[in-house]
């Protein structure tokens, strides 16, 4: 089976294209699937993570997935960020060190993910950001990663990669899984038949969590949104049919044409931000409890 990919950017159209591959290969088992990149003139590096959500599921069904006819500019991007190593192609040195390479983590690998961030956030091409911004960014990524570990039920792992865009002073980092999705989590928990966008909005509200047991939770995504607002960055959450985007201008959730098989969170930050990220004056123990 041969499938064509167009240009893929980190937007609604890009996620639709990736989700369409999942749709076209829905019941595929033990097949040979060729992804034809000849119509793909640009591939935004961070989109390697959600693309792998689709590929991981196909490989899990013992399909043989290959990549063909890649234009050299796209190949350079995807070899630099080491995505093509999963297709046994050699990596290309990233001399500028603006890439946080594609990597597959097991669900239990929170500490290894932290080591990964330690290592690649120090790349010479990654700008020196304020201490407060660096900390909040890493905290946010760990919240997303651990959220995926708890909720996704994705035995296939968690797929990550990031890219710094020096001209725009933006750093994108994407964490994707091939799990059951936010809609299924919310449906199971609330026992109501909600659609993908309502499920994403529910999960974003402070205090909402589908974590089993009777612990409070559900702050991670809300904290993420607060951070993005302050930083004037951008947050995209894609899960099943829901494409949610939040930035300084507000938020929206569009229904996609095809269902994304898992959940993907893309966090884009403004690296020139010098906010302190400490809102109130010193709290003492009595104020906290």
């Amino acid at each position: 089976m041969e499938l064509n990919l167009g240009t893929i950017r980190s937007d609604l159209s890009g996620f639709n294209t990736i989700s369409n591959i999942a749709k076209q290969t829905k019941d595929s088992f033990l097949n040979s699937i060729e992804l034809n990149f000849s119509y793909c003139s640009f591939f935004e590096a961070n989109m390697a993570a959600p693309l792998y959500s689709v590929i991981a599921r196909l490989r899990d069904e013992l399909n043989d997935v290959s990549i063909n006819n890649m234009q050299s500019s796209v190949e350079t991007i995807l070899r630099k960020n080491r995505f093509l190593t999963v297709f046994n192609q050699p990596k290309l040195s990233d001399y500028n060190q603006t890439t946080l390479p594609f990597k597959i983590f097991k669900l239990t690998a929170g500490e290894q993910f932290n080591d990964y961030l330690n290592r690649y956030m120090k790349g010479k091409g990654i700008p020196t950001m304020s201490k407060a911004l660096t900390k909040r960014f890493r905290q946010s990524l760990l919240e997303i990663f651990l959220n995926a570990a708890i909720h996704s039920e994705s035995g296939l792992g968690i797929f990550v990669c990031g890219q710094f865009y020096p001209q725009k002073h933006r750093l994108d980092f994407t964490i994707s899984d091939a799990g059951i999705g936010i809609r299924e989590n919310v449906r199971r928990y609330t026992r109501r038949k909600v659609n993908s966008c309502n499920a994403i909005k529910w999960a974003l509200a402070e205090g909402h969590t589908t974590k089993s047991g009777s612990q409070p939770g559900g702050l991670g995504l809300k904290l993420l949104k607060d951070f993005v607002q302050r930083n004037k960055g951008k947050l995209q959450i894609v899960s099943n049919f829901g494409y949610y985007e939040f930035d300084a201008d507000g938020d929206f959730c569009d229904k996609m044409d095809y269902s994304f098989p898992g959940t993907c969170v893309n966090l884009e930050i403004n690296t020139t931000d010098t906010s302190s990220y400490c809102l109130s004056s010193e709290l003492n123990g009595n104020d906290i409890f």
Partner: peptide, 8 residues
């Protein structure tokens, strides 16, 4: 490093 999930 400290995140809300742990503190919850």
């Amino acid at each position: 490093m400290l995140i809300s999930l742990f503190l919850n």
